[in-house]
Every structure is written in C-alpha cells, then in structure tokens.
C-alpha cells in the first residue's frame, strides 16, 4: 500500500517539489536579469540558455514532461543557436560593448518595476488560496500530449505547419541578396564568365543550367 502511494508521487515529496521550484525559479530569474543587463552580447545569449533551461526544469516539476523536452529541443537547441548566428553575422563585438543599453534605460526600469509591482500584487491577491494538486498521473506525459494534440487539436496543428512553411519561405526570400530574380542572373555571377578564359565555359554552362531550371 505504501509502495502504491509512493508510486503515484514523483520522486520528490510535495514540499520537495516546492523547494525545488523556488530554487530553480531563483536561478532562472537571476539568469534572466543577467541576460537583459550584461554588456557582453554573446554572454547574454549564453545566460539565456540558463534561463530557458531553468524554465524547462519548472515544466518538469509541473508534470508537463513533453513541453519540457520540446523547450529544451527548440529553445535551447535551435533558437539560441539562431541568435548566436545572428550576433556573429551582424559582427557583434566579442568583448564589452559600452553602448549595449540605450539612453532610456531608467525609464525602462521604471516601467518594468511598475508593471512587476502591480502584476505581482494582483496575482498574489487573486490566487492566495489556490493550490495545484500535483498528485495522480502526470498530466503532460508524451502519451497524453500526443492524444490531445492529434485528437482535439489537429486542425490548428496543420495550420501551424503551413505557417512554419510560410515563415521559412519568407526568411529565405528576405535573406537573399537583392536583384536575384529567378531566371535573371546578377552581374556578380556573370562577371567571371564575361572575363573569359577557362571559366567562361563552366560559367555559361552554369548559367544555362540555371535558366533551364527556371
């Protein structure tokens, strides 16, 4: 009987879950503060990894396993790598950059402090007497998530895949160099072919192949 009762809990007692949630929350908040205040741009991206990973642990403590692993895969795995690529492609300085914050940081600090104070007051006042019951089967296991996603949420899921495709094509179109219409070869590409020599035949073949494709 005690074994069955222990099996319905996680490996942490309810108080242990709360303590772990608070500790990981403090780490997450600290990493987020360093992310928005550090003057080294690459370090900001790396502290963002800590903040997002801490949030994944919070999802695990809230028994939403699938979301936690999706968070690790997509945010820590791909979004931060994309941000690092963006920092390097815009030639961000590696060391300290003194102009990382704009001049209105005190106004921003005041706005954020007012927003935090009012929202914390409202939230604490509203949910003073509510408790999350974390016992019972996990509510976000992969089985449960797959069932609800492909039984009740199939249509938004498919629409989202179309949106991802549109975003992908949009990013490709945006990041191409200008003047590269399909079928029209830009001057920089034809320059080695026009300069003649051995390259001309291969350049012409390349160009005809490209025109044949289009």
């Amino acid at each position: 009987m005690t074994f069955a009762a222990a099996a319905t809990h996680g490996f942490l007692s309810p108080a242990g879950v709360e303590i772990a949630f608070l500790l990981v929350g403090v780490v997450t908040l600290g990493a987020a503060v360093i992310t928005v205040t550090t003057r080294q741009l690459v370090h900001a991206a790396l502290w963002l990894v800590v903040a997002l990973g801490g949030l994944a642990v919070e999802y695990l403590l809230l028994t939403a396993e699938f979301i936690a692993w999706v968070q690790v895969l997509i945010y820590v795995g791909s979004v931060v790598v994309l941000l690092l690529f963006g920092l390097m492609l815009t030639k961000a300085p590696i060391g300290r950059s003194p102009d990382a914050d704009s001049g209105n940081r005190w106004v921003a600090l005041a706005v954020a402090a007012v927003a935090a104070a009012s929202l914390v007051w409202v939230v604490v006042d509203a949910f003073r007497t509510t408790w999350i019951d974390l016992d019972g089967p996990a509510q976000g296991s992969t089985k449960v998530s797959g069932e609800i996603l492909f039984r009740h949420w199939v249509l938004p899921f498919e629409a989202l895949s179309v949106l991802l495709l549109a975003a992908l094509i949009g990013a490709i179109v945006l990041s191409r160099r200008d003047g590269e219409e399909p079928g029209k070869v830009p001057a920089s590409r034809t320059a080695p072919a026009a300069r003649g020599g051995k390259d001309s035949s291969s350049g012409r073949a390349d160009r005809s192949a490209r025109e044949g494709n289009s």
Binding site: P14, V17, E18, F21, L22, G25, E58, L61, L62, V120, V123, V124, F127, R128, T130, W131, I132, L134
Partner: peptide
Amino acid sequence: MHLAYPAV
C-alpha cells in the same frame, strides 16, 4: 504547490 509560485 501554491499556484502563486509559478504565477509570480
């Protein structure tokens, strides 16, 4: 767990 923890 208290609901205020994740909300705050």
